[in-house]
């Protein structure tokens, strides 16, 4: 059983090429992906929409994504940091948040995200996808070259 199927994922990543790859990986895993490439946009999404999971790049071309992390912690959305910095570069406040070191592979992303969903303490609304029946339209769009 694929735990990630039809999960709604907020992807925050400011580099186009990296965002494209991460989006493809998440769609391959059956997720519905919402991409934010700027801090303000990411904050708006995190404030106004519900997500099952989030993948946050740390450095968004200057601004850091910590305020988004704060919002996600507040509303109980499980998330991970995907960063080239590694644990050393992280602010102490977020030591408990799992880190996916860039560059990463799809199985690593899948394993960490599944682990986040499996953790029981994250709140009831996370036990099942928000949209159980809606097929993932965007997942059918595939890059062809």
């Amino acid at each position: 059983m694929n735990l990630l199927q039809n999960r709604r994922v907020l992807l925050v990543e400011d580099e186009s090429l990296v965002a494209m790859m991460a989006e493809d990986m998440l769609m391959d895993l059956g997720c519905e992906v919402v991409v934010a490439m700027h801090l303000d946009q990411a904050l708006t999404y995190a404030q106004t929409q519900k997500f099952d999971l989030a993948v946050l790049d740390v450095n968004l071309g200057g601004p850091l994504s910590y305020p988004v992390a704060d919002l996600l912690l507040q509303n109980g959305t499980p998330f991970l940091f995907a960063t080239g910095y590694g644990q050393k570069g992280m602010k102490d406040d977020y030591k408990t948040v799992p880190i996916l070191q860039k560059p990463y592979l799809e199985p690593q992303l899948a394993a960490l995200l599944s682990q986040l969903l499996a953790e029981p303490s994250e709140g009831e609304h996370l036990s099942k996808p928000h949209r159980e029946t809606v097929p993932n339209k965007s997942a059918q769009r595939r890059p062809l070259c």
Partner: peptide, 15 residues
Amino acid sequence: PPWEGQAFVQEAVAL
């Protein structure tokens, strides 16, 4: 501006 989005940061902190 490198710090665009700061207004949002303030809002988020104030929430």
